[in-house]
Design a binder for these strands. Structure first.
Lengths: 236, 236
DNA sequence: CCGCCCGATTGATAATTGTCAAGCCGCACA
DNA sequence: TGTGCGGCTTGACAATTATCAATCGGGCGG
């Protein structure tokens, strides 16, 4: 049975509840592709021919305008992307590149649109996923518009702290220049921002972050569940 | 028949395709409410008890953090809001206030979630709306991260130009201080930004905008369909 | 083991954007 | 027709952020 190749995605929330027939129809013509690191898989403006699922590795979504580039988000194992463009049959708004060697499942958009109309469990899951992404993006925008770059960095450090099981020391999951772009600043500014976090209890050495004074950092960052709570929401 | 009060929303894309039974179930317990101008109808963090539809008037969605406020979008007649929070049964991420005397239809969120599960035409419409809002927000974020405030303003002027049927003169639809907040800048900076657009062919007097040199403005603004194309997408 | 390359850092400087204070202007209202 | 209020504008200044240039330093291939 050809579907066995796609067992790994069958249990993702987006596909878990759909009928097996629908899943088979969905994955008919789908395939798995391996990409080397730093490869642009998708360019913004192109039609969204495939729904993508990260089976393994790491993908950055980014956008470009007038020779500027900005990182929008980073996706890890089991994330899907290009869902909105796929459903609306519209061009991608973002480009995608691998950050590491990655294995990506590619499902023809045509299948997604067809099965979406036939299997209501799938349709519900899509609603859930779109609502989640939408809310995550609103939070992201609030973060950008309401905070200074130093405040954004402080909250980013706190978020990573929680991601790592409340550990007081951890490694950054991405390169600093990409983090800078994600946070809406230049690499130079990020470097200085890390220095400016020192008085707020953060020590940095290479990729390693140490929180020396969690209370001070939290007092400065003023995290807010309506901005920073990413229960199962995307971010790098 | 009680549904007659809701005739005006029956034809909106979100509700047009659903069965009449579903529509009746949806609007059972719904009501219309009139609000005076400048009234906060919804506060962020509160549960999303109702799906809101602007039947008449004008509503601003905004957010607050640490004594800062930012305008996220402005909605006019026939727009819906709080859909994502309603569907996910999660707290609102944004507050809402009327900018003018407004008439709002309020549909219990419980109804929305129930009918969404029963009427696939409604579910499809919700997917469409969520995908649209999501993409609009991504564009908004690209606008914020990739452009300077002057470039954002230039593109805003161009967008209004298209909204007004390519007219070279038109009135701003909202107060300047709200426009400033929407564009991510202070009112003072907006004032100066309008002055800085003069060399690019824009004249301002009060609410009135005149484009004296469309080619120059376009050359400066560099509009991009992946940021500025708002075919049926929300913005103030 | 060495040298190279690329990203990170630092310094100097400039551009952008925000803050504070004051004055202006149009409009609503008495 | 004053009068006052609120929003807009302007100016001076400060903070934030970007830019440009140079250096540092770690990892990798030869």
């Amino acid at each position: 049975m050809s579907a066995s190749r796609f067992d790994s995605i069958r249990d993702l929330p987006l596909f878990a509840q759909m009928h097996q027939d629908s899943f088979d129809a969905l994955t008919h013509g789908a395939f798995v592709q391996n990409f080397p690191p730093n490869m642009v898989m998708i360019s913004e403006g192109e039609p969204a021919d495939f729904l993508h699922i990260v089976q393994d590795g790491c993908v950055e979504l980014f956008s470009t305008w007038n020779n500027h580039e900005t990182s929008v988000t980073t996706l890890y194992k089991n994330s899907t992307f290009i869902l909105a463009a796929t459903i609306k049959d519209r061009p991608n708004l973002m480009s995608a590149r691998t950050l590491q060697k990655s294995r990506i499942v590619m499902v023809p958009s045509e299948n997604v649109r067809t099965v979406f109309r036939q299997d209501s469990a799938f349709a519900f899951a899509i609603v859930d996923e779109l609502a989640r992404c939408y809310r995550a993006t609103i939070k992201n925008m609030k973060n950008l518009k309401l905070r200074s770059s130093l405040e954004r960095l402080a909250n980013y450090v706190l978020k990573q702290h929680h991601r790592h099981g409340d550990a007081l020391a951890f490694d950054l999951p991405i390169e600093k220049r990409r983090l800078a772009s994600y946070l809406g600043m230049t690499p130079e500014n990020l470097s200085r921002a890390f220095n400016n976090l020192k008085p707020h209890g953060v020590a940095v050495s290479g990729q390693r972050i140490e929180i020396l004074d969690l209370a001070a950092l939290t007092a400065y960052a003023k995290p807010d569940r309506l901005i920073d709570d990413t229960t199962a929401e995307q971010a790098p």
